[in-house]
Computed example of a mutant assay.
Amino acid sequence: MTVPRRAVGAPDPVTPLLQHLVATTGLDEAEARRVVGDVVAFHREGVDDYVRRRHAALQARGLRNPEIFTRVAAELAERVVAPPTLSERQLRRIVYG
């Protein structure tokens, strides 16, 4: 994932972050840009996609639905931009329709 390009004349909010990463981590600019792109992509994932992906991953590890839905709800609450609190029923509907 690459960092989205800005429109001509628009301020670039990513440049200060890239400069900070290059100065403090030893990454070169291309590596820092890739890391920022990965982080942006992670946080861009929609709630429904996140819930389905995490449900499948936790189910594959042998967890049962009550524990999965409790864990996913807690994870959603910790996201940088947290969605509204979802009940177990709402989470179940996202997964199973």
Rank of each mutant, 00 (worst) to 15 (best):
19 Q>Y: 09
52 R>L: 00
24 T>H: 11
1 M>H: 13
57 A>Y: 07
26 G>E: 02
22 V>S: 01
52 R>P: 04
53 R>K: 09
6 R>M: 14
5 R>E: 15
44 R>M: 14
72 V>L: 07
17 L>E: 10
56 A>F: 04
32 A>T: 00
24 T>A: 08
87 S>M: 05
48 D>R: 01
20 H>C: 13
41 A>M: 11
80 V>L: 13
35 V>S: 09
21 L>E: 00
62 G>W: 03
75 E>H: 11
92 R>G: 02
29 E>V: 11
3 V>I: 09
47 V>L: 03
28 D>H: 04
26 G>K: 01
18 L>F: 00
1 M>Y: 14
5 R>C: 14
70 T>W: 07
47 V>H: 04
23 A>G: 02
6 R>V: 13
18 L>V: 01
55 H>D: 06
61 R>C: 02
93 R>K: 10
59 Q>E: 14
73 A>I: 06
25 T>Y: 07
47 V>M: 03
93 R>H: 06
42 F>S: 13
97 G>Q: 09
5 R>G: 12
12 D>T: 06
33 R>Q: 11
87 S>K: 03
52 R>H: 00
7 A>S: 15
25 T>I: 10
78 E>A: 14
25 T>V: 09
94 I>N: 03
38 D>Q: 13
84 P>H: 09
76 L>M: 11
65 N>R: 12
6 R>L: 13
79 R>H: 09
12 D>N: 04
76 L>G: 05
15 T>P: 04
53 R>H: 08
81 V>Q: 13
2 T>L: 14
35 V>I: 14
55 H>M: 08
9 G>K: 08
39 V>K: 05
76 L>I: 09
65 N>W: 13
94 I>K: 00
13 P>I: 05
19 Q>D: 14
72 V>Y: 03
48 D>Q: 08
28 D>A: 08
90 Q>F: 00
75 E>C: 11
70 T>N: 11
31 E>Q: 14
97 G>N: 04
22 V>K: 01
76 L>V: 10
51 V>T: 03
94 I>D: 03
53 R>N: 06
86 L>D: 02
77 A>T: 12
52 R>W: 05
52 R>V: 01
86 L>R: 01
75 E>F: 12
11 P>A: 10
56 A>D: 10
94 I>R: 00
55 H>G: 04
39 V>H: 09
2 T>S: 15
64 R>N: 08
31 E>N: 11
40 V>M: 07
88 E>R: 08
77 A>L: 13
29 E>S: 12
19 Q>P: 00
15 T>L: 12
34 R>S: 13
34 R>D: 12
67 E>I: 12
30 A>E: 13
7 A>P: 09
31 E>H: 12
2 T>N: 15
79 R>Y: 10
21 L>K: 02
24 T>F: 08
53 R>V: 05
6 R>G: 12
72 V>D: 01
3 V>Y: 02
8 V>D: 15
80 V>S: 15
2 T>A: 15
18 L>N: 02
84 P>V: 11
81 V>F: 14
64 R>F: 10
46 G>L: 08
85 T>A: 14
3 V>N: 01
25 T>Q: 07
79 R>K: 12
32 A>N: 01
4 P>S: 07
88 E>H: 11
89 R>Q: 07
83 P>I: 09
41 A>H: 09
65 N>E: 15
72 V>Q: 04
84 P>I: 11
5 R>A: 15
87 S>C: 03
8 V>I: 15
60 A>Q: 06
56 A>Q: 08
70 T>C: 04
47 V>Y: 00
23 A>V: 03
32 A>F: 00
